[in-house]
Design a protein around this nucleic acid. Sequence first.
DNA 1: GCATTACCCTGAAAGC
DNA 2: TGCTTTCAGGGTAATG
Length: 273
Amino acid sequence: MPELPEVETIVRKLRRIVVGKTVSEIRLSGLPLRRPMEKSFAGVLRGRRISGILRRGKYIVVRLEPHAFWLIHLGMSGRVLYRPGAATVTRHTHAVIRFSDGSALEYNDPRRFGLLAAHEARSLRELPELTSLGRDPLGPGFSSVWLLSALRATRRDVKAFLLDQNMIAGLGNIYVCEALFHARIHPARICNRISGEEAELLVHAVRKVLRRAIANHGTTFSDFAASDGEPGANQRYLRVFQREGLRCRRCRGMISRLRQGNRSSYYCPGCQH
DNA sequence: GCATTACCCTGAAAGC
DNA sequence: TGCTTTCAGGGTAATG
C-alpha cells in the first residue's frame, strides 16, 4: 500500500530515469481505474517532453513541456515500472507510455484503485486532483501550532483525522499507526482532547517515521515495489503495524488491533493512551 | 455542516 | 484437496 515514503521513493527513482524523455505512444487497457480514464489522456501526453517529477501527497506529478501535467496515483496496488525495451503487458497492465528512445513506463494495478490523469495547465494549482489536498507532513506547514489548532476544531478520532488527505496529504494506515505509537497516543482518542504537548510529540513522530521509511526506500508488502522492482527495507522498523498478538518492543505487552471506519488500527494498550 | 458508512476491485488467506 | 468466504484498504459518494 503505497504511502508518502513509497511514492517519494518511486519519484526519486523515476526522476533519474525519465526526465528529458519525450512521449511517443500511449497504449491503454480501456478498463476504468478509480474512475474512467479521461478521453483526452493520451492526447495530452503524446509528443510532450518530461521536464520534472515531483510528489504531492500520494500523487506522482509528472511535469510536461509544453505546459501540461501527468498525475499518477497508485491507490492500493498500483505500480509504475520502467522498461528499457519491450513492455511486459499482463491483464493488470492499464497503460504503457512509450518514449521516443524506445523505453517505456508501465502502469500496473490489479485492484484498479489508482488513477491516471493528464491536464494541460501551467501551474500545479490548476490541477483539480490536488486542490483540496492538505499540508505535506514533511513541509514547513506541518507544525505543532497548526496541528493543535486543526485538532481543536474537530471531534473525530485522531486516526481518521491523520488519514484525511484534505488535512495532511500523504499519510496512510501504516505510518499513522506507527506515528501514533511513537507519540504514545491511542488511535481512538478524540482530536479536540489532545494536548499541546501531545500534538508536538505527534508532529515529531510523523516526521520521524516518514523520514526513516524514505531512507529505507519504503516498507515492502506484496503490493509495493519501486520503479525498478527493488523492494524497500522499512519493515523491520515497524513497531505495531500488522503485529497483532506480538509483544511490544517497548513494554513487552501485547499489540492489539481495533477497527475504525473499516480499517485496522494496530496499537499497544500499554504504551498508548 | 460534520462525521460515519458503503462501495469500487482482486488476490491472498482463512474457513469449511 | 479444493471450493467458498472473508479481508485488505485509498478515496469518494452517499447516508446519518
